[in-house]
């Protein structure tokens, strides 16, 4: 996979099963976001394949992947400032699939929303904005949800609450691929984890089987390059 003129990802192979959460962990610049954005269709890979249920979707543009069931919650929320809260949710259903998620289901999940649905999202707190971004993605009734740095800039308690939503979503058969710098949080929630270093997967396994020292080594690449002064 190439990003610009630099090769950002090399030989990355991973899969996500329905009802499973898979975590990608790694330091800044390891290629985590590039990976997620490539799966969402925002980057075209130079080589390699992306498949959904055996159907190749590598050539599909981003908006068509939403219809196929691949939906991203982007890093930094990226809500639309010209749209009201409710419109931000509705736009998620533009090319969505049919399914259980609709406005009233999202409002059930986030009971504070209906009172503010006609307001712009600019003045919401970070956690509230992240909830809208999650709601927007759910409106498309995804098969697989791509979560990019959910915890970024949020208080730990808020992050806890957001991640507490995941088990129910997984229960309903949704697959989740999450990129997270908060390793503890990511490992706690996921059934499988991959550690990404300089565009390569250096460690994979079930969180329970991964020794903290190995994770640390894979995360920072100590073993390969030696500790730098």
């Amino acid at each position: 996979m190439r990003y610009g003129q630099l090769q950002a990802l090399t030989d990355v192979t991973l899969s996500v099963a329905a009802g499973e959460a898979v975590a990608i962990i790694g330091a800044n610049g390891a290629g985590k976001s590039t990976l997620l954005r490539t799966i969402a269709g925002l980057h075209r890979p130079a080589a390699g394949k992306i498949q959904l249920d055996g159907r190749e979707i590598t050539a599909l543009p981003a908006h068509e992947r939403v219809r196929a069931g691949v939906v991203q919650v982007p890093e930094g929320r990226r809500l639309f400032p010209s749209l009201t809260l409710e419109e931000n949710l509705q736009i998620g259903a533009t090319r969505g699939r049919a399914g259980e998620w609709n406005l009233s289901r999202v409002y059930e999940l986030f009971p504070w929303m209906p009172a503010r649905r006609h307001m712009t999202t600019v003045f919401l707190s970070g956690g509230e904005q992240q909830s809208v971004a999650i709601g927007r993605a759910l409106m498309a009734n995804p098969r697989i949800l791509l979560l990019d740095e959910l915890s970024l800039g949020l208080a730990p308690a808020v992050v806890q609450r957001l991640y507490a939503l995941l088990p129910d979503l997984l229960e309903s058969g949704l697959g989740v691929l999450l990129v997270e710098q908060d390793v503890t949080q990511a490992l706690r929630i996921s059934g499988h984890a991959h550690c990404l270093l300089e565009g390569r997967i250096t460690l994979s396994g079930r969180p329970a089987d991964l020794a903290p020292a190995d994770v640390e080594a894979a995360y920072f690449g100590f073993e390969r390059r030696g500790r730098r002064g």
């Binding site: 269709g41 925002l42 939403v66 639309f80 090319r95």
Partner: peptide, 9 residues
């Protein structure tokens, strides 16, 4: 970019 990633052509 975000518009296309939530399904807007």
């Amino acid at each position: 970019e975000t518009a296309s990633s939530v399904g807007v052509n």
